[in-house]
Design a protein around this nucleic acid. Structure first.
Lengths: 344, 344
DNA sequence: CGTTTCGCTGCAATCGTTTGCAGTACCGGC
DNA sequence: GCCGGTACTGCAAACGATTGCAGCGAAACG
């Protein structure tokens, strides 16, 4: 309960340096140091150093209403998609003396709420959310408390909250154009969950890109997954293969995990990739270049997304910014060995 | 600068409920609620709810010297080894109302120091460190401040700091015995950095296991890597292959990344695995079951390690525990397809 | 030499809670 | 009727910092 009172406070320094605590505070703070006599300041600095003084940010935060902490909501850090984003965020925050409070929500509303509450109670200066969904209610709540919030990897239809994402439509277009360029025309889409903005937008992008290429998209050429997992990808892929009567020659998947699921059914059925079926993923997760075959996928600059998002919350610390909604970064197709010309 | 003063404080609740702030505090806290008249308590609860009161943990922490926050030091969250550990930690912490403050150190001493300072300034209640090294100095510093520290995935020789790890020696023995059982006798070791406890202990374990199996380990049968990366693994593997004059038939690697490096040189040289060379990894990182061939490796219960570590810091909150040093969890060999009988 | 200005420092309130202590009211027992 | 006890509740001092305001001495100015 009672931790040994070892901490040296501003008062200790003051006593030792023969000045008032207020003066110590000023001397220690870059911003206000000019207000104190250089000699005094120097002395205070010395004493602080000698005593091993460590400012108590908690106390500081109480007074200044700033904790220099940003809450980061992630569905599941175990999903390889997120670590790079997190790195991007952290590195950027660190530069400015901020720290990230990271939590996993599992996209579970109650976990989400618990975590957001906990973070608000800790007076975080802002939020970055990579979660697929966030209660409208929760959203409004943090909005009302006017602590900045920025979304990554997804966005709101109404643009009411700033977001940084990759241009999903353009990205999917890259993918379909690639296989079209290879000569494919019977192209399927293993789509992500439609209640997630990412899944939905990629599906839209697929339809658009196909239309632009003058290709029809029938009911048989797309299947929806309930989650972004290998299992669902496999299920959808199998259904697609069955429904198309073996005519499909390429699949663009809603994300890499889904693509891996496709690999699984090919292997199971003894079909080759890209010989029998070309597959392109989405995200360029770590290690997909090590799959057999290495996965052709669209690379999204995760780390940069994180960094930009961090930048944004940091800027938002200064107050709201007008006319800010979505920042789109450019995706990039990385061609590996899971795509090739159509069979026959 | 001045955020709108929207927060409702304990005083607002007090005014509204016609009681003293102290009473509100007591009513709101489970522990002390019995001290207040049930009716009053109920009324306070109601008002608090109605006003949307959110206790300010910062203020609370200032008074109670508890932040319910644990600092977690990780080398690099981008390394697939760590996300599961982090999950284990977070889930366990969440159960107890704690939150994790996570940072990436890159094993860089200055980053490390910066981060530790920042966390101490934020008055974290404890530390969990998964970093390979930590300045002796830093270690002592947090020790002196008597905030609990527990290590994961590595330990100190002198056992001065509680740690939770897997039994590296036993684990490597599992690996060695496996290939020995397959009939191998010319077994090499691609060892991790010897300045990291993990790398060192696995190397020791390798020598011991070989000795126990009655097998010699010559100078030509081990190569050391400077880092736990594919590149280094590849370099070491190539050297090993060259040095042994083509006699080696199996390699046990210091970790999965190193093993992947071995895969690379085999591919480069057109050699097969496990036909020409059996390879066993260490850690059972996500996705190694999807490599070609799926990697035989020793599984370490990352998530559990994290959970146990979290448990430990939590327990340590009650005060130091006597006779506590290292908690060893059991590794488990998972045999996949990268190992087979020796050629010839 | 008186007055203003300036540079520096001290004072004390404040941030939002917690908590030891004291006070009050009521009840029961003798 | 007095006393002790019990059950609440209020008071006020913390926790460790920040900061507007005021004071003070010395320099500058007229």
């Amino acid at each position: 309960m009672e931790r040994v009172r070892t901490a040296v406070t501003i008062r200790d320094v003051a006593r030792e340096a023969q000045v008032h605590p207020g003066t110590v505070s000023r001397a220690l703070n870059e911003q206000t140091r000019t207000l104190v006599n250089p000699e005094t300041a120097e002395r205070v600095l010395q004493v602080a150093e000698r005593l091993g003084y460590r400012p108590n940010r908690i106390a500081r935060g109480l007074k200044t209403n700033r904790t220099y902490t940003i809450g980061v909501l992630i569905p599941d850090i175990t999903n390889p998609l997120f670590p790079p984003i997190l790195r991007g965020i952290e590195d950027r925050l660190l530069d400015e003396g901020y720290t990230a409070l990271v939590v996993n929500t599992d996209n579970d509303p109650v976990r989400e709420r618990t975590h957001v509450e906990a973070m608000r109670a800790r007076q975080v200066d802002g939020f970055i959310s990579a979660t697929a969904r966030l209660d409208r209610e929760l959203l409004d709540e943090v909005g009302a408390a006017d602590v900045p919030l920025v979304l990554v990897n997804r966005s709101l239809e109404d643009g009411s909250v700033p977001a940084v994402t990759v241009d999903d439509r353009q990205a999917i277009k890259l993918a379909v154009d690639h296989v079209v360029g290879l000569g494919h025309s019977r192209i399927g889409h293993v789509a992500g969950p439609q209640n997630l903005s990412t899944g939905h937008r990629r599906y839209q992008g697929f339809k658009e890109a196909m239309a632009a290429a003058g290709l029809p998209v029938s009911e048989d050429s797309v299947r929806f997954c309930r989650t972004f997992t290998e299992e669902e990808g496999a299920r959808a892929c199998a259904e697609l293969l069955d429904a198309s009567g073996g005519e499909l020659t390429a699949i663009v998947a809603g994300n890499d995990l889904l693509a891996i699921g496709c690999y699984d059914v090919l292997e199971e059925r003894g079909l080759s990739c890209p010989g029998y079926l070309s597959i392109v993923g989405y995200n360029d997760m770590p290690f997909v270049d090590r799959l057999r075959p290495p996965l052709t996928t669209v690379h999204v600059p995760q780390r940069e997304i994180g960094a930009v998002a961090a930048d944004l919350v940091l800027q938002l610390q200064g107050g709201p910014i007008e006319g800010l909604d979505e920042i789109l970064l450019d995706p990039e197709l990385v061609v590996r060995e899971s795509t090739g010309p159509p069979r026959g």
